[in-house]
Amino acid sequence: MNQTAEIVAPQQDQPLVQVSGLEVRFKSPDRTVHAVNGVDLTLKRGEILTILGESGSGKSVTLRTLMRLLPERRTQLKGQVSVDGRDVLAMPQRELRRFRGRTAAMIFQEPMLAFDPVFTIGQQIAETVCRHEGVSHKEGLARALELFELVRIPSARRRLANYPHELSGGMSQRAMIALALSCRPRLLLADEPTTALDATVQIQILLLLRELQRELDMSVIFVTHDMGVANEISDRIAVMYGGRIVETGKVGEIIAQPRHPYTLGLMNSRASGELKGQRLEAIPGSPPDLATLPSGCAFAPRCPYAIDTCHDSVPIAHTIEGQHWAACHRLEQTQP
């Protein structure tokens, strides 16, 4: 541990993740999908950032780009992505293999699909450790046991011998977190890891991730569509819409004083007990089609404050306070 600390120390104040001007397009013969349209993002060491957005907002694509998991042949990438000082988009395959797992690791929504059904969980974690760190299988298994205890799986030794189908939903999500942490990554990417879980299990996993982040001093990027979950887990939130970040700030700023009309709309349309019997302030219309994105602000067709400028030009980010900014032409309309 000490050794790594020394190596890292000189660049400690540098952000761990720096993304600028990222554009992602998926090409197929008959159409081009503009999934991400200019995303700038920085993540400090030891920070938890949540990307909040609906389906098709580009949140998962952004996350996958950080590990270069997108199909190379059909994907056009533009912009810079650097993680821990290394250029991810320019990395050769060999280096990429070392990078995945050691520097950045990812957990997914469906833990069951992330495991091979014909090997025990213990074997799979041990294999990963052997492969990346060059230790013996026995040491790999010992590390797997350590990891299972780290993610608080009860009777860990017995559980290592289980096959994936023998674990419940919450347990297999814990096992997947253990697998992701097996090579002590600096950056954990989490793609809706609690969406498929039951309510009482979801909160356990969120609390576990928070504890692990502190214990291991990791940085985490967490993707979700659920504002409650974002509030529970994050230090900072970035709201995405139509492939762009429309607002970002500390969790308190986004939840308590949102300024972008889309974030505001999301907050106001939440059903809750207090609104019983009243109509919900729903956002009209539906999310944009990423193949035919409007030329101006992507939210303009649904926005109650939209003027002509909004339909013509894409708004740039305006600082509101400190690190809180929003990309909107009509911010004066949303002043509290």
């Binding site: 609906e54 389906s55 504002m227 709309g265 999301l266 349309s269 109509r279 729903a282 539906s286 649904r302």
Partner: peptide
């Protein structure tokens, strides 16, 4: 449904 659409359908 997406959260922004959910409210419409509830209404």
């Amino acid at each position: 449904l997406d959260k922004s659409v959910e409210a419409q359908v509830l209404n």
